[in-house]
Design a protein around this nucleic acid. Structure first.
Lengths: 260, 260
DNA sequence: TGGTCTTCAA
DNA sequence: TTGAAGACCA
């Protein structure tokens, strides 16, 4: 059986909000190390990988491996019931046909309890190789979102050029062209604004902005985002959650002169 | 060639926001004295006239007269990329087919650059006669906006009566009538709240509130607004920008018992 | 497609 | 804290 208590129901809420447009149904794979989720979007261009480590919960108990097949849109509705500071406890029996969610708000002695029907989902579990990326850019997640939405005004795709000079996001469209260039910089006073670029080799790749903008819904989860690039390899966009938990998005580059 | 550096990208952003609902495409007429814009709204009821003097920029350079034909909705999208404290440099070659906009944020080493395609716009340039108005009312721009939006709740037109007693805004509609009367007054402590009415002759005119509310989008550009009235002549609503630069709106009065 | 709601920037 | 803009739902 699974029993996991999350101090901030908010975290799960934001995670689900950030991925529900990419994935309709998916398994939450629970074992003694934590709760993992991996799913491709419908068009098989993007992949979501979440890991909530056992340490993110207190307490956390999972006797044996369980795959909880959940419809994310249903889960969203249930999570909407969570107040901002609610404590969430999720429970499931080993052969459960439902996921039990309990929201507690110590403040006003309110307990909400939901049972969410589970479903069987066949899911190929993809081994994602740990890649050494040619370029790793760490930046404020709000800035990444800003850049993506700004360039969305020009085109539906963006080219990322990482070089020793910095990282350049550029888009060309009907009304004109646009680009945003960031350089590494460290601000002692406001470390949350830091931009850090690590580069072993210049990279130039083009991606669908629609997906990137979608990934940016996760911005609320972390003040920083890590963008990792290698030529001809899917982009990785990573948001760190508490501890070593994370939410990762992978996106295959657009190839050649491909349009749309 | 034109090259103009504006310390506050914000100013252009607000100007364009304030007029983009009235005018879709228009020319920015550049010469050595500054950048001017003049355009009628689609229904030819309102006229916008902007003048950004060369002194508002530093540096400012314009070798010869250029008319830059811009789609304001595209320009809005580009200006949305401007952070609040960004410095904006606009550039255009003499026979340019694109306007180049560069936003710099010294703080976080971010440079955004956009090329906006230009268009040819045939524009009758209207000589606007410098009129002596029968009544000139200067008031806080926020108060003018408040009055217009408040009266909007009653009707879609408003009658302005300027007399030696003050200025009265009144609206009559299905649910009832409303009016707001302002008198001249000077507040030493808070000069930004001053209301000043200069009058040579009583005036009574009726205008479309929809347009007035639209003009009020410019409120953010200046704490004061000047409203100038003469019988049977378009109303002038003027916002002063830095120095002698300005944004002016003209609106023809409604005649007789005209509805709509 | 409109209205409402949340979210984001100032 | 407020207003505007985007997202969501009906």
């Amino acid at each position: 059986m699974l029993e996991a208590r999350l101090e901030q129901a908010n975290v799960l809420k934001k995670v689900v909000d950030a991925i529900k447009d990419l994935v309709q149904d998916c398994n939450f794979d629970c074992n003694d190390s934590g709760i993992a989720l991996q799913a491709m979007d419908n068009s098989h261009v993007a992949l979501v990988s979440m890991m909530l480590k056992a340490e993110a919960f207190s307490p956390y108990r999972c006797d044996r491996n369980i795959a909880l097949g959940v419809n994310l849109s249903s889960l969203t509705r249930v999570l909407r019931a969570a107040q901002n500071e609610d404590i969430l406890t999720v429970k499931a029996d080993d052969a459960a046909d439902a996921l039990n969610l309990v929201f507690e708000s110590s403040e006003n002695d309110r307990i909400s309890e939901y049972d969410l029907k589970l479903m069987d989902i066949d899911q190929e579990h993809l081994g994602i190789p740990e890649t050494e990326y040619a370029a790793t850019v760490s930046m404020p997640s709000s800035e990444f979102r800003r850049i993506c939405t700004d360039l969305m005004a020009m085109s539906d795709s963006v080219t990322l050029d990482a070089s020793k000079d910095g990282i350049k996001f550029s888009s060309a469209g009907d009304i004109g062209n646009g680009s945003v260039t960031l350089r590494s910089h460290t601000n002692m006073d406001k470390p949350e604004l830091n931009v850090n670029i690590e580069l072993t080799e210049p990279v130039s790749l083009t991606f669908s902005l629609k997906y990137l903008v979608n990934f940016c819904k996760a911005s609320a989860l972390s003040p920083h985002v890590k963008v990792c690039l290698s030529n001809e390899v899917p982009l990785l966009v990573e948001y760190n959650l508490s501890g070593t938990s994370y939410l990762r998005f992978y996106l295959a580059p657009k190839i050649g002169d491909e349009e749309s």
